[in-house]
Design a protein around this nucleic acid. Structure first.
Lengths: 222, 222
DNA sequence: GCAAAAGTGTTGTTTGTACACCCATGT
DNA sequence: ACATGGGTGTACAAACAACACTTTTGC
């Protein structure tokens, strides 16, 4: 933070990159855009862009998220800053500050572009991405998995009301393994991260499910 | 003196800041330098500097650490990137990528300067630091405390061989609470992060202590 | 009445915590 | 002999993991 020598020969660029994750149909998906320009034209990549002048990092990430999905006010957290940027010769020097966001699939309106068009991809079947973006997704996934264990971040992936099975599906999609229904329910309720919401959901030829809601729809440790 | 916004179209700067921590005599200390130049002249601050041209972030942090302490190859990890820099009007825009490092007190040769001279300060009695550096130290401390629980990072604070009491002192200084000797020893040994080193240390008028060594002197999860 | 998902308790294991005394040494 | 830090075991509590059957509904 000390600002010493004011001469900046070729200033490094600051890019902000966002790993936007959602859960749909038992699958954890990440939003990718197909690159048009060099480098890596035609490759899938994480959405990102340069830090605008006078903009804070958090704000830039939030803006990028909104541009691609139309959503705001979701869980958004800084991940890591990568200092060795693109390998290509024509690539400019700089740092990439990465974030990850958790959005409800149903809330998203993907930006409709013909170039740089965004699209959901299962994190479990990712193609080779531009830059080191595969590593960034891996990093986000590790972070998300550990946060899931000691925070209520899942609130950002679900609507106000949901069933315990919905919640369990979210956990199973993220952790990529099956959980025991009874242990799961007991834990969620005893940690008081959720509470009964009163209503019931009747759908399909089976017993209706109790609806629940998160006690807080903001990040808290449990 | 114009207090208005001077419209700085200057590219954002990238600073690298390092929280260098050590444990000595039951105390956890951080290395601070006393600022000479604006802004905050005379204030204590974390060592840092601008990213040199063509340099990776990790390398810049490592270089800064070596410049101040003379040590290399210690535990060094990126912490967080702060995007809203100084509040002062005269401060330049930019991002600060922060790191934290763990060094053995005995290995350090502090840089001898009259200006920007470095000095150890107890993290439990910090003065008001320049910029938001107090928040950075807090962040480092939280991260270190949690890493201490599930990694072997303490290796970076101790010499090759040490006694279990040495190790416990390190943990207590960092966690800022007393630990039960028997439980501590049992846990360290059962996790196999350390192993008996064969020798004994005879000093003082009491029973000699077994020497131990870390099974790996590199970061591993336990 | 049957298919389909919702809901519900008990038991054993593991992990963590609290706690007090003897041992080897130098003076 | 005494002061100093080194070294050791047990009992209780809490957290976690495994496991199977009944309930409510739509068709």
């Amino acid at each position: 933070m000390p600002a010493s020598s004011p001469q900046t020969p070729d200033p490094p660029l600051t890019a902000v990159v966002v790993v936007i994750l959602t859960v749909v149909e038992d699958d954890l998906r990440v939003l990718l855009i197909r690159r048009a320009a060099e480098p890596y034209p035609g490759s899938w990549a994480l959405p990102g862009g340069l830090l605008a002048d006078g903009e804070s990092l958090d704000r830039a990430a939030s803006r990028k998220l909104h541009d691609e999905t139309g959503v705001r006010d979701v869980y958004l957290e800084q991940l890591y800053t990568f200092g060795e940027l693109p390998r290509g010769d024509d690539a400019r020097r700089g740092v990439a500050v990465t974030y990850f966001a958790l959005v409800q699939y149903g809330q998203v309106r993907l930006a409709e572009r013909t170039e740089w068009a965004p699209q959901w991809h299962s994190v479990y079947k990712l193609p080779a991405l531009a830059f080191d973006n595969n590593a960034v997704v891996d990093y986000a996934l590790r972070r998300l998995r550990s946060k899931l264990e000691y925070t209520n971040v899942a609130y950002s992936l679900l609507p106000r009301q949901f069933t315990l099975s919905d919640l369990q599906q979210v956990y199973e999609a993220i952790l990529d393994r099956e959980l025991d229904k009874r242990n799961f329910r007991r834990r969620m309720l005893s940690l008081a991260v959720i509470k009964p919401a009163g209503g019931r959901r009747m759908e399909g030829a089976h017993r209706p499910a109790q609806l629940y809601a998160f006690t807080k729809r903001e990040p808290v440790m449990v």
